[in-house]
Design a protein around this nucleic acid. Structure first.
Length: 302
DNA sequence: AAAAGGATCAACCGCCACTAC
DNA sequence: AGTAGTGGCGGTTGATCCTTT
């Protein structure tokens, strides 16, 4: 007997999410907090599987996600962590809380893998088959005598583009495309309290043409709507008694202690090769992040 | 300008781990 | 201890965009 599907496949919508669906999901989570994904499709009327809702939230909609180009520092962290942990994208993502595991995985597969391959072949054609790990270790032994300045993760995020901005953009485009539907949802959400005053105001303003130029909601304003404080206030602990599962709680604790890996994010117990985290933390944050950066600079092809 | 091929990334799938009963 | 339900993870796919010819 196989495992039953996570949801009834009949009538389940697949494929890219529409702005309308995003709004509904965000509104719901804002009110109830993330978690209990099983009930999300039922309670929202979304024709999506619970997994799909969770994925959409964690990979795209949740606050604190940084999108766009990876900085050299981030690249370095990923290369380093991949060499240490292997393809444990969630574990790697916990060290880069503004990035999702999916993003990191995609970036690795589309960019970094090639870069490293090139770099390895350039170093020594015979080395092409050597593992990234040995390469990194070699670099480490070379660089350890020239320690880099300490790095704080916060400094890597000057070009912060949170999902709140994504959503505000989304709202912007959405309002233009289907004002009728939007009016309906606006009313529903406003009535149900799922949308707060600011959101309602924003939608209304857009509809009234008040933002002719298509200005975005100010970052601070929108951030406050979807901030973790709000989510916490809303119903965080209602969900499962958990703090936000997975990387969310990381983002919430994203100030200066991001390198504390939550229990659920720790590599699975079958991965016994993972070095102690304290070691990793120290190494990555104090020492090595800059090393790979330098490595990038060393090679004209990076 | 159009076609072909490559790159990118959002989303899906299947499996595993954890938890409650 | 066994089972079912749920969430989380990593691999993969496929649609779309971009670049090259």
């Amino acid at each position: 007997m196989g495992r039953p599907p996570c949801c009834d496949k009949v009538g389940i919508k697949k494929g890219p999410w529409t702005p309308e669906e995003d709004i509904i999901l965000v509104s719901y989570i804002q009110e109830h907090g993330p978690g209990n994904w099983r009930s999300v499709p039922t309670n929202t009327g979304l024709l999506r599987c619970s997994k799909s809702c969770r994925l959409r939230w964690t990979n795209y909609l949740r606050p604190g996600i940084k999108r766009g180009n990876f900085t050299p520092h981030e690249e370095g962290m990923i290369i380093h962590l991949q060499a240490l942990l292997g393809n444990k994208w969630a574990a790697i993502a916990s060290y880069l809380p503004q990035r999702t595991d999916n993003d990191i995985k995609n970036y690795w597969n589309t960019h970094l893998k090639k870069k490293l391959k090139k770099f390895q072949s350039a170093l020594d054609p015979h080395m092409a088959s050597d593992s990234t790990k040995s390469f990194i270790n070699e670099r480490r032994s070379l660089e350890i005598i020239t320690p880099s300045p300490s790095l704080s993760l916060s400094q890597s995020s000057t070009t912060y583009a949170s999902s709140t901005e994504n959503i505000s953009r989304l709202l912007e485009g959405w309002m233009r495309s289907s004002p009728k539907t939007n009016n309906k949802i606006l009313q529903q959400n406003t009535n149900s309290g799922a949308m707060d005053n600011h959101q309602a105001y924003q939608l209304k303003a857009e509809q009234d043409g008040g933002h002719g130029g298509g200005d975005l909601v100010s970052h601070e304003e929108f951030e406050s709507i979807l901030s973790f404080e709000n989510l916490n206030n809303a119903a965080w602990d209602k969900s499962t008694g958990d703090s936000m599962p997975g990387r969310g709680s990381q983002a919430a604790a994203n100030d200066d202690k991001v390198h504390v890996l939550p229990e659920k994010n720790k590599p699975r117990s079958d991965n016994n090769t993972t070095p102690p985290l304290s070691f990793l933390e120290k190494w990555l944050l104090d020492e090595s992040a800059g090393q790979v950066e330098e490595m990038m600079e060393l090679s004209p092809m990076f």
